[in-house]
Design a protein around this nucleic acid. Structure first.
Lengths: 142, 142
DNA sequence: CTGTGTGCAAAACGTTTGCATGCCT
DNA sequence: AGGCATGCAAACGTTTTGCACACAG
């Protein structure tokens, strides 16, 4: 089974679990997000998907993305007021935005650092999720 | 010297250091941000400032806010795609957004947790700043 | 006086909506 | 066959812009 087929079957399961239909637009958008994992914006995704599905609309891209976020398949990240970006990395991680290259890099968060993050939250607060981003200059080798 | 005078003198020093002029609009916007410290949006600020300066424009509020952010007097926070919010707390802290009340609470970050955050960043990366936010349910007493 | 900051209106930008049509199940 | 998903265009909310005027230094 190819990686893409594996990915599609993940998608099918997740959609079915939510009572959602499998469409070629959803499959294509999902594969595009998994392909480069470069934190594309909705517009980036629209342009890439249109190469394969020239008739797809912007609204459909947004619909698909919202569906995936609701299913927990994709994370929406808002580093600033510009476009939201979409990330298929579901394990605990932070984002580092390089001021020089503009690239966004995933930084894994180990359990020790995760505990430390939890310690910031006062007792009695129920903690559902977090967003952590850094900005600076990444290593030139990256 | 009143707290407001102290605050204004901070602003005057910071503006002067950047070669910027002191205007009644800037003083008023700055005081509004310091007053309630409830992470107001630009629109919130506009409405509050207009009570004191009825002729102020939206563009001026945005200009002031951008100036303050550039001076490092105020932090701009983007928790989601809705309006940016402005925060005068300059010490290291995270934000907790309560899903029930919608309130945003500052959570101080001690030096231990700060070190832990730094440990997430790979060697060779120069780290300029971070943004950390949590969402969940805050303690009902808050 | 000089020119930066302001007020106004319109534009820009990313995203969402309403509605008719298409297609998955 | 039924109804959810799509495509289109227009609307939306937030923020930025261009320009003439005001006022701080």
């Amino acid at each position: 089974m190819s990686i893409e087929q594996k990915q599609n079957s993940d998608l099918l399961v997740s959609l079915k679990a939510k009572g959602l239909r499998s469409t070629k637009q959803r499959l294509c958008v999902y594969n595009i997000i998994l392909e480069k994992r470069d934190h594309p914006t909705a517009d980036d995704i629209f342009l890439r998907v249109r190469k394969k599905l020239p008739k797809i609309s912007f609204a459909t891209v947004y619909n698909c993305l919202e569906t995936f976020v609701d299913c927990g398949l994709v994370k929406k990240i808002n580093l600033d007021r510009s476009s939201s970006r979409y990330c298929p990395n579901l394990s605990p991680h932070a984002h580092f935005k390089c001021a020089t290259t503009g690239k966004i890099i995933d930084l894994p968060i180990n359990s020790e650092a995760l505990n430390s993050l939890n310690s910031i939250i006062p007792d009695g607060f129920s903690h559902v999720g977090f967003d952590l981003s850094f900005h600076g200059i990444s290593n030139p080798n990256n």
